[in-house]
Every structure is written in structure tokens, then in C-alpha cells.
């Protein structure tokens, strides 16, 4: 039956839910969703990872950027899903409202979970949203700097004063917009390619160093990712 394709069950994996009402509060009332997530090291997305990825309908390997272009359902199909449930008979026997959901994206190993909502279904949606943001942050593509031209999704998150951004790109997309993740991913690809140098990266996207810094600092997760990279290269963090 096809519904088995929707998710992969992992029946034996059960974790007790540790609950901290204080930290949940934080997740719920701030827009930044990552405080409860396991963060992995950046995944350099090469052929090895591609080989492990599910193949799309036409048989091509799914590429890093394409993970984010999948529909929620397609993305979830690449995941192992655990519902963090207490053990026991379940069903009509139980009233415990354990509704946490954990997604493990098999091609990349990225894990996202959500437990703050009262319904399992809504937690699944939140977990997918977080997974998308984490993929954007953690999955890197190699950039050919000699032939570099900023992709559209990156241009969309740049401020209008960027000299490479035409007016046809439309209004600037901010961190609260779901499409920001795609642009953020492309920006991180570029910053990784120039080994963390903000002034170098700024040249490729027609911004001053200050303007790019401000863009990076506008999103906590983006700032953290850039600063982690800079720290690994012995550079000072952006503040």
C-alpha cells in the first residue's frame, strides 16, 4: 500500500519525553526555532551523500538545493519519523498527550523535532519547517567562484542597494519568510567558498562589507553558522 511510502516507521525507537515548560515557552513565543535542536557539523554535500540520497522519479540524484525544493511530503518521505511516545498499550488505554515528533533526514542525517504543539499533526508540520531551515544551514554545495553568478533565491534576500540585484527581483525577503531558507543556503555556500571572508563574499553580491554583515546578523541561525565557520578559520566573529 502506498501509504507505507509516506513515512518510514521506526517502531522500536522510543525515547522518554523530558519536558521543561520553561524552555518550551521560549520556543513558542520567539520565532527562532532552533533552541531545542541537535546541531550537526556542516555536511559537505558531495557525491557520497548524493549516492545515499533517495532518487527522484526520473532517476536523478537529489541535489542539495533540491531538498528544499521538494514538497513537504516528498521531504518527509526521505525521513525516518519517530513519534516520541511513552511505551504501553496506547490507543484507547491511554490519555497522555505525548505528541512530540522527530524527523531524521536520511540523506543528510539532520534531525529536527517539535513538541510544543498540542497535536501530533501540527508538531509534524513544525518539525518539517525546522528540517528545511536546518538543511539550508547545514548542507553545503561547492561553488565555482570563477564563474560565480548569484542565484535568484540569494538575490531575493539581498537589500535593494546591492549592485547586482535588478529591480525585477522584487522586494527583499526577510528571515520570517519561508523562502529565506533557500537564499540563506546560497549565501552560506558562497561564504564557505571564500572561507569565511565577509569582504570577499560581499564583492560577489555587490554589497559593502558592512551591508553584508548586517544581513548576516539579521538572522540568529545564519549568524551562528557564519561565526562557527570563522572561528574554525581563526577569524573574529561578527557582532
Amino acid at each position: 500500500m502506498a501509504h507505507k511510502l509516506i513515512w518510514k516507521w521506526k517502531p522500536t525507537f522510543m525515547l522518554p519525553l523530558t519536558f521543561n515548560s520553561q524552555s518550551k515557552h521560549v520556543i513558542r513565543f520567539h520565532h527562532h526555532p532552533f533552541s531545542s535542536l541537535k546541531i550537526h557539523h556542516p555536511i559537505n554535500y558531495t557525491t557520497t551523500a548524493a549516492a545515499a540520497a533517495n532518487t527522484s522519479n526520473n532517476g536523478d540524484c537529489v541535489k542539495a538545493k533540491e531538498f528544499l525544493e521538494l514538497t513537504d511530503e516528498e521531504l518527509v518521505r526521505q525521513c525516518e519519523m519517530d513519534f516520541l511516545k511513552s511505551s504501553g498499550a496506547g490507543g484507547q488505554h491511554r490519555n497522555k498527550r505525548e505528541s512530540a515528533v522527530r524527523l531524521k533526514h536520511l540523506p543528510t542525517g539532520i534531525i529536527a523535532q517539535a513538541s510544543e504543539d498540542r497535536s501530533q499533526h501540527m508538531n509534524r508540520d513544525s518539525a518539517v519547517k525546522r528540517l528545511r531551515a536546518l538543511i539550508a544551514l547545514k548542507v553545503r554545495k561547492t561553488v565555482d567562484l570563477d564563474a560565480y553568478s548569484p542565484p535568484r533565491e540569494l538575490l531575493q534576500i539581498l537589500p535593494p542597494k546591492s549592485t547586482v540585484r535588478g529591480s525585477e527581483i522584487g522586494p527583499q525577503i526577510g528571515p520570517k519568510n519561508q523562502k529565506f531558507a533557500l537564499g540563506m543556503q546560497a549565501l552560506l555556500d558562497l561564504i564557505f567558498a571564500v572561507e569565511g571572508s565577509i569582504s570577499e563574499a560581499a564583492k560577489y553580491i555587490g554589497l559593502s562589507t558592512g551591508a553584508l554583515s548586517r544581513l548576516i546578523l539579521s538572522d540568529d541561525s545564519l549568524r551562528k553558522e557564519v561565526n562557527d565557520l570563522r572561528a574554525s578559520k581563526g577569524m573574529k566573529p561578527l557582532k
Binding site: H3, W9, P11, M14, D82, F83, K85, A89, G90, Q120
Partner: peptide, 15 residues
């Protein structure tokens, strides 16, 4: 007929 497990891995549904 098919037996399908719930999210906790318990064989829960008959379809």
C-alpha cells in the same frame, strides 16, 4: 487485508 502499525510500532489497524 493489511495490518498497519501505529507510530509507536504497535500493529494497530486493519485495512
Amino acid at each position: 487485508f493489511e495490518i498497519v502499525a501505529d507510530f509507536a510500532g504497535i500493529q494497530r489497524f486493519v485495512i
